[in-house]
């Protein structure tokens, strides 16, 4: 009887394998490590059919935070990277892991908060001033806390507030060498670090009636859907320090000879081409532009 069960399982398994096996049979694939904001906003699924049509290369999208995406690429598990944390990208190139880095597009971060705005930051353009008000009033602030590009930017903004900060550090031993990963945060129980993606962080902030830093694209996707998933409002926006540029890089074939470097080069040439840049600029969700191609730079208000 057990044998019967097992053979039954085997039959089902083989049938399923052969029926979804076609998905692996693609001639050429390219693994793109990118951030949740480009994936969850629908931009990549809007653009990629064009790339696949032109080159016949299927793009496999792995969407993680910027930190995790760069780590995947360092380990040679991706061919091309599209992320938003300029310092880390430059370090990635300087360490010899990445080549052919190009600017692709940008969007911007916004500070969200409950519409009743207990910290009275509405209209404060400089995010450092806004965050200082939130901190001084002890109002709840939800942080990504996951080493993502957004989290990196949030820490830069806290440094600019001039407030005393605490350092959370972990020491990791990699290849026999000690590395210290540190993140800074203001002290106090009002600061909540959730260690989640952008979407979940907005949901937590909504539930807690808290302030948070979000990228505009994810915020629009949550606020403009029907029914709206968040009632948080944009309270501070438009400052230069909130600009969020995305860069694309190929994984260096000198470091990882197995990577699909030809495909990565084609991808970079394609996404920076005038035609695709225009597609990026025209891409809108609920009538709102989410990303601006870097080739043409409109003024941030």
């Amino acid at each position: 009887m057990i044998r019967l069960t097992l053979s039954l399982l085997a039959t089902v398994g083989l049938a399923a394998e052969s029926c979804c096996g076609a998905a692996y049979a693609a001639d050429e694939t390219l693994t793109l490590a990118t951030t949740t904001s480009t994936d969850n906003s629908g931009l990549l699924s809007h653009l990629h059919p064009d790339f696949e049509k032109k080159t016949g290369i299927q793009v496999k999208v792995v969407a993680k935070g910027t930190g995790a995406s760069l780590q995947l690429a360092r380990d040679g598990n991706a061919d091309v990277v599209l992320v938003h944390a300029r310092e880390q990208e430059e370090q990635f190139v300087a360490e010899g892991y990445g080549v052919l880095r190009r600017e692709v597009m940008y969007n911007d971060f916004v500070i969200l908060g409950p519409p009743e705005d207990p910290a009275r930051i509405r209209g404060i353009r400089n995010p450092a001033d806004a965050l200082r008000s939130v901190a001084q009033g002890g109002h709840c602030f939800v942080s990504r806390g996951d080493g993502s590009g957004t989290h990196v930017r949030e820490q830069q903004l806290w440094r600019r507030t001039g407030l005393p900060l605490e350092t959370d550090a972990v020491t990791v031993i990699l290849e026999g060498q000690k590395r210290r990963y540190a993140s800074v945060r203001p002290p106090g129980g009002w600061y909540v670090s959730v260690g989640q993606g952008m979407g979940k962080t907005i949901m937590v902030a909504t539930e807690k009636r808290a302030y948070t830093l979000a990228d505009r694209g994810t915020y629009y996707a949550f606020a403009l859907s029907t029914p709206a998933k968040t009632d948080l409002a944009i309270l501070s926006e438009g400052h230069e320090s909130l600009r969020n540029p995305y860069g694309v890089m190929a994984v260096n074939p000198a470091r990882h000879p197995h990577v699909n470097f030809t495909g990565a080069r084609k991808y970079i040439e394609w996404i920076t081409s005038p035609e695709v840049q225009e597609m990026i600029g025209r891409y809108a969700v609920e009538g709102k532009t989410l990303f601006y191609p870097s080739a043409r730079v409109p003024e941030l208000r």
């Binding site: 998905a23 969850n40 299927q58 999208v61 993606g197 979407g199 979940k200 949550f222 968040t230």
Partner: peptide, 19 residues
């Protein structure tokens, strides 16, 4: 990964991420 390794549960988690 869409079309390659996305399963019922990981698709579910992605929908949660998207709200």
């Amino acid at each position: 990964i869409d079309r390659f390794t996305r399963t019922m549960t990981t698709a579910l988690v992605r929908y949660v991420d998207m709200g």
